[in-house]
């Protein structure tokens, strides 16, 4: 399938100028291309901030925040959330809200365990276990 579409893609390319001009005129690229430029800019920013020793342990948080902004851009412009029905927006939101429930209550266990943080899990000596090979499908 992909080989064939490549050949067709290539065919489309060589008459690119003739057909594309006809195909594209009138199709305004505007909101999409500016959004794309913003996304590339944000990605570059995230990369730079990650490589610089500015934030130390918070650097992951910063890059995740930038990723969230990029995600918002994609949601609004590429996935047309503005024009979507409220129930469609709600179902998208539900996924994220239920994720916070999973994270929140799971962390409520890990953050409140006795002893200094993370001490409850020590790597034990190699435990005796069934050999790799024996474990069938």
């Amino acid at each position: 399938m992909s080989a064939q579409s490549e050949k067709a893609g290539a065919a489309a390319k060589d008459t690119m100028s003739a057909r594309a001009k006809r195909a594209f005129e009138g199709l305004d690229l505007f909101p999409e291309v500016t959004v794309f430029a913003a996304l590339v800019g944000l990605a570059a920013l995230s990369l730079i901030l990650a490589l610089l020793p500015l934030f130390g342990s918070l650097s992951l948080l910063v890059s995740l925040l930038i990723a969230a902004v990029m995600a918002a851009l994609v949601l609004i412009f590429f996935m047309h959330m503005r024009r979507a029905m409220t129930v469609v927006v709600l179902s998208g939101m539900a996924g994220i809200v239920w994720l916070t429930i999973l994270f929140g209550l799971t962390l409520s266990d890990y953050l409140t365990r006795a002893g200094p943080f993370g001490s409850s899990i020590e790597p034990p000596p190699a435990v005796g276990r069934v050999g790799e090979g024996e474990r069938g499908l």
Binding site: I101, L105, S108, D109, Y110, A114, S120
Partner: peptide, 22 residues
């Protein structure tokens, strides 16, 4: 129903505060 799953793990070594929340 999505907030209560920890009551299956009271004895599993889960922290006591999480157990009481669940």
């Amino acid at each position: 129903g999505f907030f209560v799953w920890g009551h299956h793990m009271f004895t599993s070594g889960q922290s006591m505060y999480a157990s009481l929340t669940f």
